[in-house]
Write a protein that binds this DNA or RNA. Sequence first.
DNA 1: GCAATATATATGCACTCGCATGTATATTGT
DNA 2: ACAATATACATGCGAGTGCATATATATTGC
Lengths: 168, 168
Amino acid sequence: MTKTTHAVPMDAPSTDTPAPIRRPGEAVTAAWIGLMRAQQIAIRSAERALRRAGLPAYGWYDALWELEKAGDDGLRITEIEQRMLVTQSNVSRLVDRLEAAACIVRRPSPTDGRAQQIVITAAGRAVRAQMWPVYAEVIQTVLGDHVSAEEADRIAQILAPVIAEGRG
Amino acid sequence: MTKTTHAVPMDAPSTDTPAPIRRPGEAVTAAWIGLMRAQQIAIRSAERALRRAGLPAYGWYDALWELEKAGDDGLRITEIEQRMLVTQSNVSRLVDRLEAAACIVRRPSPTDGRAQQIVITAAGRAVRAQMWPVYAEVIQTVLGDHVSAEEADRIAQILAPVIAEGRG
DNA sequence: GCAATATATATGCACTCGCATGTATATTGT
DNA sequence: ACAATATACATGCGAGTGCATATATATTGC
């Protein structure tokens, strides 16, 4: 699983290979487009459903869920950033909004003067719980109604290494 | 944890069932998360690569490619909207930018006074051609290096009905 | 033929995003 | 101990986004 994808051997007798062009095959391109389109449909549906229900945006759910899983010490901004795949500045501002809504509290880290613990509150848990049915309905309608459990498994499996690498 | 203790039989005498709760299974939820994460990694990689190369954003590629495929009569704003899955107002403004960069021209529709034909220019084709290698490299690095051709096919196949439905 | 309605596109607004950068604290090298 | 550098987080700014709405043209019902 270690990569180093050297399609072209370094010691090839090539005189001067003009930059190895890495071109995806048709299948990969089709999968890419599918990924883009499907996710676009998915996230737009979710955002619209949440908005219509008078609930916060998708990012709130994502963050609150990570914080809920994280336990009593919460997470640092950078940890949220890694888990959500959002830029640091956006996590910073999302946390601002969550704090303004009393969904989280900021505590200074006892071990690192630069860092802080972001901890979910009861109100935060309540908001997430309120969002879930709306969110779940969208997941089922957009994705669940059109793929079998086996297909869903397959997607998750195939995409796992893509995501694992993307984090590195 | 996963059991609903009060399962309501689907075929119960339909008095007035209080909105069936549609909850996605674990596999579907995992696939959803995979979709979200993978696409996030993908699009961010693409945007960053294009920006670093001094090239326009991903949306430009998408639009220019649709217009290139469309031929001499171009596309209407609404047609681009459907193909790209972007809101009408954003297509309108994207077309503004493409026009400012001389990548497209707007022609009044000969058959519909409200509509216009958006037609790609030679400059627009050149920009798309210039973007492709950068874009292709990202597709290959992010997706192609981590999935086989069969897996890529599978993803495209599985997602096709999701997308088809999403458009409807 | 005209009012009512639908469709194609544009725009004001508020909001979020990514990037670049600023500030504070921690770590490392000498 | 102290300068240099790295890390954690915040913020100003320009740009893009969705939504609601405005404007112009088409279509439909009477």
